[in-house]
Design a protein around this nucleic acid. Sequence first.
DNA 1: CATCATGTTGACAGCGCTGTCATTCGTCAA
DNA 2: TTGACGAATGACAGCGCTGTCAACATGATG
Lengths: 338, 338
Amino acid sequence: MSEKKRITLDDVARLAGVSAITVSRALRRPEMVSEAVRKRIDSAVAELGYVPNPAARHLATGRSNVIGVLIPSVTNNVFSEVLKGIYAASETSPYDVQLANTRYCANTEESALRLFASQKPAGMVVSGFDQTEAGRKLLETLDCPVVQIMETGEDPVDVCVGLSHFHAAEAATRHLLAQGYRRPGFLGARMDPRTRRRFAGFRAEAQAAGVFAEARVVTSTEASSVTKGAEMLRQLMAQAPEVDAIFCNNDDLALGALFEAQRLGLSVPERLGICGFNDLEVMAVANPSLTSVRTRRFEMGRSAIEIILARLDGGWQGPRVVDLGHEVIARQSTARQR
Amino acid sequence: MSEKKRITLDDVARLAGVSAITVSRALRRPEMVSEAVRKRIDSAVAELGYVPNPAARHLATGRSNVIGVLIPSVTNNVFSEVLKGIYAASETSPYDVQLANTRYCANTEESALRLFASQKPAGMVVSGFDQTEAGRKLLETLDCPVVQIMETGEDPVDVCVGLSHFHAAEAATRHLLAQGYRRPGFLGARMDPRTRRRFAGFRAEAQAAGVFAEARVVTSTEASSVTKGAEMLRQLMAQAPEVDAIFCNNDDLALGALFEAQRLGLSVPERLGICGFNDLEVMAVANPSLTSVRTRRFEMGRSAIEIILARLDGGWQGPRVVDLGHEVIARQSTARQR
DNA sequence: CATCATGTTGACAGCGCTGTCATTCGTCAA
DNA sequence: TTGACGAATGACAGCGCTGTCAACATGATG
């Protein structure tokens, strides 16, 4: 019943009455083959249901059709949006996306990178700018398009697509101050490089206004989560009860903080203003709805792939640094009467 | 500076003073090579930083090192947990996971399957039992371990790991009834096969108790989301205001429904009981905390890969149907005074 | 001492494809 | 008419690895 034998170029060639190499050309650069022959080949391909063997192609060309993607976490909501964009853009391309999880560890990233390098990827997508030195060098010698996502930076390996977390956090803090809050605090979990830059933005803005206090900062090295947000708010209220607003380094923390504030009987936004980061879907629906900073995660993933495809196709005319920007979405959780 | 040349088996062989094939063996079946030679080879490998070329191996063996994973959605929280399990279990193995998105469409799934088939995957993970006929046949002739995840079924292609959505929904409904709710409703988005089975479980249990009413069912073909949950509750309250409890086909809907209930001034759990499905992390922290049905999604992903690895390694002694079960986690949102 | 099983190593071909030539043939200018 | 040239096609080798089988050494056996 099931024919186990693989259908090869030769089979197609025989059926079409041409040589294998011509079939190969007809498939890859149809313009090099006369129309008559191309038609014969196309119908032979269809008749036999021929599918090229990527491994053989890889071996012959020394190039794989893999686009490697290095992200710190598969589960984090933020990255899952990015991934969605990546898959959306790559689906119709002849390239395969291959994911590796760096777990927020530069060394893990480096070894994953090394593994990808051995496959001669068609392109690479990596998160941020905080590679190890060897990792960075590896990326530079990879000889394929490399897109750094999640943030913007001065000197990308090749191209980067993201936003300035520092500026975004500044804007969020500015919003809190504009709403009349005067004793802002900060909740930050995981404290990866981008979280740290957000903290720096918060601090810079708060210090400029003369309202920064170390006691109103609660951080954790653990992963962020809704539960964590609740815990951290409790801790913050214990150590700095005067706090009147919080900037959370992401939406999970903000949501957890909201729930906990309700349990503690702190009215939001009157007694406590809450601002998250990323603007996950839940923020708009929560009760009260939660202020957040919108980041364009889906677009980040999508353009990363689109840039790679454009590069591979000859041209990418865009700039080396693509800033997708940010937008503070003010909602009930910071809508205090001034 | 950067040596572009690939290091091959031959290079290692030359340095170790043996033939290429011996190096190949030392790497794949060390027990077939004498200890002295193995040591020389190992140090040559280390010295040169040799990394095997998977494409060449694939071509020579006719087998790739790819484990194909077909899931309906990359973003859905449920699958991201499963993915995490998959990545966790495959990370240390020599196999590469490759993902394809079926978008809840059997035809998309079939063509992805066809693509994978052409790569001779080492193993396949697919979601559920609702393949097209051709898809099912393809899986059967794939000649590699195939694990169906997300649900249990009578006749898996090979092995399946999941739970009975019907029974889980029955249990949730039983819980609502045991809490004294008498006019239960159902909120269901996306209505994929598993959602439908959950609905069937809800209906069966409600009908058995004589409390099922078609008017208290709200469904949608759109994807589920927190926003959707809010919308659907509003619709339900409009068309069947007598409803006193809802079973939501997943947690996003339940959370959205909770927020909307608060906005509508419906007290939870007194006026309205809410039960979700999957027990995402947020359920325990919400205020009030939300009852849900815990499913072991991480384990599903992990065991799928473990089963494949065991199969490839010679033996998988376990059953063909692995039921990971379910557990109703009762929380405040259904804790009504009887 | 011949015989044989066992353990270790190597030679060789070939997986399916493509890069690099070489070849053929028709066309057009001189 | 001739030569030159470009377009279309093909022959061949080889990408890096492994399956198969042969060769060899070793020590046990009769």
